[in-house]
């Protein structure tokens, strides 16, 4: 299967009080057609900024400093903003974190669907309404509810409606920012199953941005782990969860409990991500990494391929087996 989205060396900066803060720094990322990629990391690691940059909806004080974002081989960063907006909904669409923000509280869902389907998609009203019914069915919502206002929907229903809207014009790629974080476990599972079914039935490609590694393992075949503006490890979810190679990924796995496995102690990652206005020298995770060597504080580790399709930006990637052994011990992470 071919590459649908190809991100090469993408960098994004925010201007804050006269200084440039690089929130996304030289990110490379590929999404094959039909794949679901999970983008994981802590808050402030740049994952939402990356998602917004891919969508071309960065806030006014942010700018793309370099790199390319190619969708089916066409570089989106070279398009004029107007041209770019035309691609939204039709080629790539967005499910925001709080779906209340995506839905306008003063319009009925049907009118909001019409806006996307008619204005953006050029469908006549009647065809748009038929399509809206089909979309609501596909995400497990009763089409009768199309005449409701968003406030008449529960959180899970609003999230499904936002997904239905994102799918309206058959986009090639959907980017979902924390699509289930605000939901209860049962509703969360129902929404995850809806996305999974759409992936299976429609061959939907998606980027799922989340801080919860369990959500990624449930849903996504591919995973990219982000830390302080960089992708520190990426590969198949199977490889990353079974053979984590970057100590940050190991730490995230430690901190994610499995309800069906006995747990004695959860191991946190001490400290906080660095201030990106003044990132540390060398590996950005080194100040929090219990396995860091002197070299890690001197220069920046480039990503190395550890097995086909699995790379990690760590100087000690070759000793990953021994590091995993050490990282499993709680004493390694406490100082």
């Amino acid at each position: 299967m071919g590459t649908l989205l190809e991100v090469k060396g993408l960098s994004v900066s925010y201007r804050r009080g006269g200084v440039a803060v690089r929130a996304v720094d030289a990110v490379d990322l590929d999404v094959p057609a039909g794949a679901m990629l999970g983008l994981v990391g802590e808050s402030g690691c740049g994952k939402s900024t990356l998602a917004r940059a891919l969508m071309g909806v960065l806030p006014g004080n942010a700018s793309i400093d370099g790199g390319r974002v190619a969708l089916d081989g066409e570089d989106l960063t070279e398009l004029t903003p107007a041209k770019r907006r035309q691609r939204l909904w039709r080629e790539l669409s967005f499910v925001p974190q709080t779906s209340m923000n995506a839905l306008d509280p003063v319009y009925r869902l049907r009118d909001q669907m019409r806006e996307v389907l008619c204005e953006r998609g050029g469908l006549p009203t009647k065809a748009a309404d038929e399509r809206a019914v089909a979309l609501f069915r596909s995400v497990g919502l009763d089409p009768v509810r199309l005449t409701d206002f968003p406030h008449q929907f529960s959180g899970g229903m609003r999230q499904r409606a936002a997904i239905a809207m994102a799918l309206a014009l058959n986009p090639k790629l959907v980017i979902a920012d924390e699509p289930v974080t605000a939901l209860d476990v049962i509703v969360q599972r129902q929404v995850l199953d809806t996305i999974r079914r759409l992936g299976r039935d429609l061959g939907l490609s998606a980027i799922i941005v989340t801080h919860d590694i369990s959500v990624v393992t449930y849903l996504c075949g591919l995973t990219a782990v982000m830390y302080a503006g960089r992708i520190v490890e990426q590969g198949t979810t199977e490889a990353l969860t079974r053979r984590p190679t970057h100590p940050y990924t190991m730490g995230l796995m430690n901190a994610s409990p499995d309800l069906h496995e006995p747990v004695e102690t959860l191991v946190p990652i001490e400290g906080a991500p660095p201030d990106l206005a003044d990132p540390p020298k060398g590996c950005r995770f080194a100040p929090r990494c219990p396995l860091a060597l002197a070299a890690c504080r001197e220069s920046d580790p480039p990503p190395v391929v550890v097995e086909p399709g699995h790379s990690a930006a760590c100087f000690r990637a070759a000793e990953a087996g021994a590091l995993r052994e050490a990282a499993r011990k709680a004493s390694t992470w406490t100082r």
Partner: peptide, 24 residues
Amino acid sequence: KALIAAVPRPDVDQPRDALPISGA
């Protein structure tokens, strides 16, 4: 049972069966 089954796990081989309860 549904509350327990609904929790996603950090394991790629976790079961993904439909939940035993439906609706909201």
